Simulated scan of single mutants.
Amino acid sequence: MGEPNVKFGVPILDKLLPRGIPRRSLVIMVGDSGTGKSLITQLMAGSFLQRGEKVIYVCLDDDPESIVSSMESRGIEARRYAREGKLILVDAYASRYGLETEEYVAEKISSLDIHGVSSILARLADNNGIRDSGLVILDSLNSFAFRYEPSMLYDFLNMLRVSLAKKRGITTVATFHTPTQLYAEIAATLEHMADVYIIIRYHEEALEAGVAVRELLIKKAKGVPVMFGWVKFVITDEGILEAKVRKIEG
């Protein structure tokens, strides 16, 4: 731990970023719903945990139990890591609606106050000794976008970038869904705040043919070499696999 660069541990990303990324990075991953962003963040979390780094996972789009179950279906011992205090689950989903949450959840957030959430994450990092190591995941930022004007969302991201990535040296990853043109425009504005900016989308021709092929682009990665261009992949029981798509003749 403490190395200046860190790899995600997800083969398709590590291929595109052969030297990894600077540890003190804010990573933003954008794309349509269902393209695999949440799965990729869960695989990132598993990789960090397996090499002994702690992970703070903020559950914003789903309840912790669903996320833990998804991780375990991919061979990640999420419950064990949570009970050992290595996977620090923050319930900002069920708790917002007054619902009970699982005993292995480390923190409950009932209100999405951007200053409050930023302070909670800084406190969790400090209380768990996470500095120049580890990972913070927020999946997804849309919960904040529903509540706040875009300018407030930008301020929130800047707070996370300064407080977690830069000051504490914790790689910080946030996802953002782009179901409408408005959200696509917000996502485009988020790019200039990110140290690493990743876009995921469906491959249109394959989708029209009834095959769920996605493609991924690392549009920006500060300070490290990157292989540019869209890379196609599929989601299988074995994980995320790179795919080859032949041109469909008309």
Rank of each mutant, 00 (worst) to 15 (best):
Y81G: 11
S163F: 01
D237T: 11
R74D: 03
A184S: 12
V90Y: 02
E215A: 03
I12W: 00
I67L: 14
K86M: 07
Y81L: 03
K247Y: 07
A221H: 02
E84A: 14
K247G: 07
M1Q: 10
L60H: 05
R51M: 01
L39Y: 11
V90P: 00
K7I: 12
Q50A: 08
M44S: 00
R19M: 07
A221D: 05
G31Q: 10
K108D: 00
L135T: 13
L135V: 15
S133I: 01
M71D: 01
A187G: 09
K166T: 06
D195Q: 04
V213E: 08
A206E: 14
A174V: 13
R147F: 08
G239F: 03
A92I: 00
G52F: 00
A209P: 06
I67F: 03
C59H: 01
H115G: 02
V245M: 05
A82Q: 03
S163H: 01
W230K: 01
R201L: 07
I170V: 13
E238K: 06
A243S: 07
V231E: 12
V30A: 02
H192K: 00
P179Q: 11
E107F: 03
E100G: 04
P4E: 15
G116F: 02
S95R: 02
F48I: 06
S73A: 13
D139P: 14
G210R: 05
E149G: 14
M71I: 09
M29S: 00
R161L: 06
A165R: 01
I186F: 03
E205R: 05
G169V: 10
T175E: 08
G169L: 06
L190F: 00
L138V: 15
L16V: 05
T178L: 15
G169A: 09
V117F: 00
Y104M: 09
G31L: 02
V6R: 14
M193W: 03
G210F: 12
G20Q: 11
I56Q: 06
K167H: 10
V30C: 04
K232G: 05
P18V: 04
K54N: 04
P150Y: 12
Q181R: 14
A45Q: 12
L89G: 06
S95K: 05
L121P: 09
Y57E: 04
Y148Q: 08
D14K: 05
I120P: 10
L135C: 04
I114V: 11
F146L: 15
I130D: 13
N5K: 15
F156W: 13
R83E: 13
R161W: 09
L135I: 09
A82S: 12
G250M: 13
R161A: 12
Y148D: 10
M29C: 04
N5R: 13
V231I: 07
E103F: 10
S110K: 03
I88C: 01
G36D: 09
D155G: 02
G2R: 11
L138I: 15
Y81V: 02
V173P: 10
K37W: 11
L17E: 08
Y197M: 01
G210S: 11
T171K: 06
E107S: 00
V211W: 08
H115E: 08
M71G: 08
P150W: 15
G36Q: 06
L26S: 04
I240D: 14
V58F: 14
M152G: 13
V162Y: 02
E84M: 15
V55W: 06
D113N: 04
F233L: 06
V30F: 03
A212S: 09
I56P: 03
V226M: 01
R168I: 08
I88L: 10
L121C: 09
A94M: 10
K166A: 06
